[in-house]
């Protein structure tokens, strides 16, 4: 462990490699986190099934790619399919927990996450999947830093997807309805906004974001049925650190987490990377609470 750390410190080029690859992965975390903050802000639900939606999106993209869909179409296909799935989940389960106690929505979406996790496991098998786009890599600093092209493309596409949704929320009529509902559902309702439809759209859009994130993950990295919860926890952590509704903060926190996680995975050993993610989240919550308690205020 100490050796690995020294290795990083003594080889700046190598450290750059680890950090850079982490940053690129962070874009996908940020994308999933953006979706979570949207659902949290508008529906007031902490969506524990978030990570499973990412994984499911990844499998849909993988299935499409293996059936001959070209790589550039994988993201839109997965996003569209996941929009539909998100929409469907809203009208079967989520709409029942919108006004309920937060614990109810956490448990319900937790239950959903188990269902989706097991279904993907049954349908797609428990193997680790990755789709090779055959784009190759490029090298910097005499080969000390290796970056796969697909990771760079995934980074750009993640930013673009998030940006498109952000513009949509700012400028489209529906986007404005969503933001109005987030601010004050009752007032929005009185103004003639169909809040139920807004919620369904929001949840669907979140599905689409997860679909996009998943399709990029399966092309640039790997997926398997049991990595959903880590994605959920990463999203949660990013939103908590950034603050609700802070898109810039989500990007910064997401990229930082990606870099930090990659470094930790290298220093501690890859088998501890998941432990690191979960421990970090606990520490962030403890620290946040400790800071608030010193000011005698409570966070709820």
């Amino acid at each position: 462990m100490v050796d690995n750390f020294l290795l990083l410190v003594q080889n700046p080029n190598f450290a750059l490699d680890v950090v850079l690859n982490g940053l690129l992965a962070g874009a996908i975390f940020a994308l999933a986190a953006y979706g979570m903050s949207l659902v949290w802000g508008v529906l007031n639900i902490v969506n524990i099934v978030q990570g499973e939606l990412v994984v499911l999106g990844g499998y849909i993209a993988y299935a499409a790619l293996s059936h001959g869909v070209p790589a550039y179409a994988a993201l839109p296909v997965s996003a569209l399919a996941m929009f539909a799935i998100g929409w469907g989940l809203y009208y079967t389960v989520i709409f029942r927990v919108v006004d309920k106690d937060l614990f109810i929505s956490i448990l319900a979406t937790f239950g959903l996450s188990i269902v989706i996790q097991q279904l993907t496991n049954t349908i797609f098998g428990s193997d680790v999947r990755s789709f090779d786009t055959g784009l190759g890599s490029f090298y910097m600093l005499d080969g000390a830093v290796t970056v796969a092209w697909i990771k760079v493309i995934a980074f750009v596409l993640a930013m673009v997807s998030g940006g498109v949704l952000w513009l949509f929320l700012r400028h489209a009529r529906l986007g404005q309805a969503i933001r109005a509902t987030a601010q004050n559902p009752r007032a929005a309702h009185i103004l003639g906004i169909n809040t139920d439809r807004v919620y369904a759209m929001t949840y669907g859009l979140n599905g689409a974001l997860c679909g996009a994130a998943g399709s990029l993950a399966v092309m640039a990295w790997t997926i398997h049925p049991y990595i959903g919860l880590p994605y959920t926890v990463r999203s949660f952590m990013i939103v908590v650190v950034a603050g609700l509704g802070n898109v810039g903060g989500v990007v910064v926190a997401g990229l930082s987490l990606g870099a930090l996680e990659n470094v930790a995975g290298f220093v501690l050993g890859a088998e501890y990377q998941i432990a690191f993610v979960f421990t970090l989240m606990v520490l962030i919550l403890v620290w946040r609470n400790w800071r608030a308690a010193r000011r005698r205020t409570y966070l709820s």
Binding site: V46, L102, F103, I106, L229, V233, F236, V240, I274, A275, F278, T279, M281, V282, L285, V286, N289, W290, A293, Y298, L299, S300
Partner: peptide
């Protein structure tokens, strides 16, 4: 000292970690 759903999720993280 952590309240509400933050406590629920913190403990979830603790168990898995």
């Amino acid at each position: 000292g952590i309240r509400g759903h933050y406590f629920a999720i913190a403990t979830l993280g603790l168990g898995i970690a």
